[in-house]
Amino acid sequence: MAIIETRELSLVYGQGSALEVTALDKCSFSIEAGEVLGVIGHTGSGKSTLAQLLNGLLKPTSGKVLLDGKDIWGKPKEIRRVRFDVGLVFQYPEYQLFEDTVYKDIAFGPKNKGLKGDELDRAVREAAEFTGLKPELLEKSPFDLSGGEKRRAAIAGVMAMRPRVLILDEPTAGLDPHGRERILDRVLEYRDKTGSAIVLVSHSMEDIARVSDRVLVLNHGRAEMCDPTAAVFSRGEELAAMGLRVPQVTEIFLELKKLGVDVNTSVYTVKDGLAQVLRLLRGGAENNE
């Protein structure tokens, strides 16, 4: 059964005023446990709005968000509980660190959830481990960490609440390639160990192609596609019309095909691309099956 399901979810900012903006328009999709859903869309397509609707930070103008089949706004007073099940990591989360040690900062979320003593300690140390923070860093001030470490500490702060759905809004923005890989690997590890669902919002098609099982494409607040990753990236022209593109490696193979090289263009990650190039080089183009 789907953990989260949205039904005709819409959000209109400034309703009734001259500045009315429809940020999200009748979006319906679902997220299964253990899957990674990539969310792509150009700037202002409603990605961040969607993320905040899923954990109840924003209230939909119409439509519903169902968590385990129950409307999260069924009891508005208990909306805070939803946030422990649906963890949201904002863009540049390192700017929300505030405690005097990394340990205390990571403990902020689980403490709010009501964890105490050993349970709290375990949650914090596990989250640090998930994100690859060394135990000695826990006693440091978060402001003394490097950029990548800060980012991971902030993500650990959300993971420590053990959300069953982890939403990450541009978690790799502004990091170097090594840092990006590391964060994505850690997120996948969290999914593998806890069986949680991951929602990854990103502008990087490479990141999306690398980790997503399915991709949700937003355009002007509408859910245009919500299909397996390969199916979405095989519709390159439609994506281009929405101001998006396919991963760079796919572009290379599309170009190769145009040049008359007999290649399979459904290549979305560098790893797959490499495998195909090796096969071509070894076998020669003529006996490529």
């Binding site: 905040q52 954990n55 805070r80 946030r83 990591v89 929300q96 505030f98 979320g109």
Partner: peptide, 28 residues
């Protein structure tokens, strides 16, 4: 929003609790 996403309870409870809830916002 970010602190609320971590379960911060802002704008409820007694005066002391409310003041304490401001710290995670003011420092960042």
């Amino acid at each position: 929003s970010a602190q609320k996403a971590r379960g911060a309870d802002i704008g409820s409870g007694g005066a002391f609790k409310r003041i304490k809830a401001v710290v995670p916002i003011l420092i960042p």
